[in-house]
Design a protein around this nucleic acid. Structure first.
Lengths: 189, 189
DNA sequence: ACCTGAACACCGTTCAAGT
DNA sequence: ACCTGAACACCGTTCAAGT
């Protein structure tokens, strides 16, 4: 609040004329970020649409510091967030899912996207230099671990360390969509 | 730090004789929490084992305030966390996954569990009374939304609001495992 | 209607001084 | 080796007082 006030060339106390508290400000910020989400593609399968939405959402969340934390911490009451929810629900509903399945799938997908961005961003140190230092530390530690206690970990150390977060994110999205699709197929038979 | 010092009947400055800073303390705390994870079941399919591990992990994380945030924020260097990683990797590796696939699947599963707990816990207000109030607010808002702008959301309002977080968590775990299994099956053919 | 100064009740952390 | 008092540089928030 103090830093924002400074940016606005005003004193911190003045902010409370426009906003009840910091939480309300964050909720407004969260909704503003959701305004950046593009509309889902209007062609392609429901799977392809949801995959594109998930990837786009992750990209936008990663571009705004703390955005995932804000979305997780504030209830989805703003118009832009509601619109994003509406669009996800519409894709699933049109694909033939029941009301309950649509609600479940939309919630799991949303939590997955927000959750993975949270897990990824909370872990990274503030500076890029500190991130590199920690990464090097981890690499060294993993290699130096006792093989008797952590046989699999030591054997897979390279595979564990060299991995793109985006690739793993996408992999999980596709796995989730696989599972959701199977559930749909099972119900139809 | 100040509150912990008080609990220990000592002044806050004394803590810095035992720990470099708050982050180090949190890392130790995170590892202590991981000591509670039970060993994976030694019988059953790899899917059933991983599902049990995910459910157990979620239960323990939900039982300790801020535990998911701590795990996400600190690098996995402690012995108990490393042991948990080793066990997940071992199950996947023994199931026949390649080194890269094992690393990917383990990471996605772990991020999913931590991420969903994060998403769930960051959202809940401190007091149970406040949680109930917010829930009521949400219910009322969802019902009062304009049908023209949010047709699917309004139609599915009940299904969206009445949902157990555990059930949805488990649903996502199973969907993920479905997807991971499919990937394995595809490679084998 | 909006802004400000001053205060309140908090944080994590440092450091010289004690024992 | 461990503890302490006192300080530093921060927070979010309130409120009477100004215009």
């Amino acid at each position: 609040m103090r830093r924002l006030a400074e940016e606005l060339e005003v004193k911190a106390a003045s902010l409370y004329n426009h906003v009840q508290d910091k939480d309300e400000l964050l909720a407004l910020l969260g909704d503003a970020i959701c305004a950046e989400f593009p509309d889902p593609p209007r062609t392609g399968s429901w799977r392809a649409r949801l995959e594109a939405m998930a990837v786009n959402t992750r990209k936008i969340l990663m571009a705004h510091r703390d955005s995932a934390r804000i979305l997780a911490a504030t209830p989805p009451l703003g118009p832009n967030r509601l619109r994003a929810i509406e669009q996800t629900l519409a894709v699933l509903s049109e694909a033939g899912f029941s009301a309950a399945d649509t609600a479940d799938a939309a919630h799991v997908l949303n939590s997955y996207v927000v959750g993975l961005v949270l897990d990824e961003t909370l872990g990274q140190p503030a500076s890029a230099a500190a991130a590199r230092r920690r990464w090097e530390e981890g690499r060294r530690l993993f290699k130096s671990l006792p093989k008797e206690r952590y046989p699999t970990l030591v054997r897979l150390a390279d595979a564990l360390i060299d991995a793109s977060p985006e690739r793993r994110f996408l992999l999980g999205v596709r796995a989730l969509l696989d599972g959701i699709e199977q559930r749909l197929a099972k119900k139809r038979t």
